[in-house]
């Protein structure tokens, strides 16, 4: 079983990103389960979303405490939330940032960076002050960890994203190309 935790802010699309990835995994034969942080979500507040998937049916119904990988949609959260809490050794930390990998120091973990904000702004996803970076971050993630093909993610975006489908697809593709990571 693989478990992933998304860190974002209400409105950035962390929950939807987790659902899109779940749907893509499901298309490729995985069982999956995804849920938001159980509670009251507010725009701009730190939020989390969780995803677990496996080749076998998933029967467990409790929260994810030890994710294999984390995806951070807002780099400012690195200063506000203990994002690596419970992260398994060698797990990937994918950060939406314009910084280089070398800027970060996370011993025992692998860092990946992608400027999803710049990509989202380019395709006018969300607003200038609150760009929606979720689909770009998914493109970046499946490049690092090809549990599923980019095509399956793009198909799920078409299915689950209500507006600007084409722009979201382009953002996802571009992040797939531009993500930098330690191999």
């Amino acid at each position: 079983m693989v478990e992933i935790r998304f860190h974002g802010r209400g409105g950035q699309g962390a929950v939807v990103a987790s659902e899109i990835l779940a749907a893509a995994l499901f298309k490729e034969g995985y069982y999956c389960q995804t849920f938001p942080e159980f509670g009251v979500e507010r725009r701009g507040a730190p939020v989390q979303a969780f995803l677990r998937f496996d080749k076998k049916p998933i029967v467990i119904r409790y929260k994810i405490y030890h994710p294999d990988h984390i995806i951070i949609l807002d780099p400012v959260l690195l200063n506000q939330v203990n994002v690596t809490d419970g992260l398994k050794p060698n797990g990937t930390i994918l950060i939406n940032t314009n910084k280089e990998i070398s800027y970060y120091s996370f011993p025992n973990y692998k860092v990946a960076v992608c400027d999803a904000t710049q990509i989202a702004l380019k395709y006018r996803l969300g607003t200038k002050t609150a760009p929606i970076v979720n689909t770009a971050m998914l493109g970046a993630f499946v490049r690092i960890h090809p549990f599923v093909s980019l095509d399956s993610v793009l198909e799920s975006i078409k299915e689950y994203v209500e507006v600007k489908k084409e722009e979201n697809i382009l953002a996802c593709r571009e992040a797939y190309e531009k993500v930098r990571f330690e191999s």
């Binding site: 999956c32 995804t34 849920f35 159980f38 998933i58 119904r61």
Partner: peptide, 12 residues
């Protein structure tokens, strides 16, 4: 159905 554990959890 249980709040959140089912109500807000997505699965196939």
């Amino acid at each position: 159905l249980d709040a959140f554990v089912l109500s807000h959890t997505s699965e196939p």
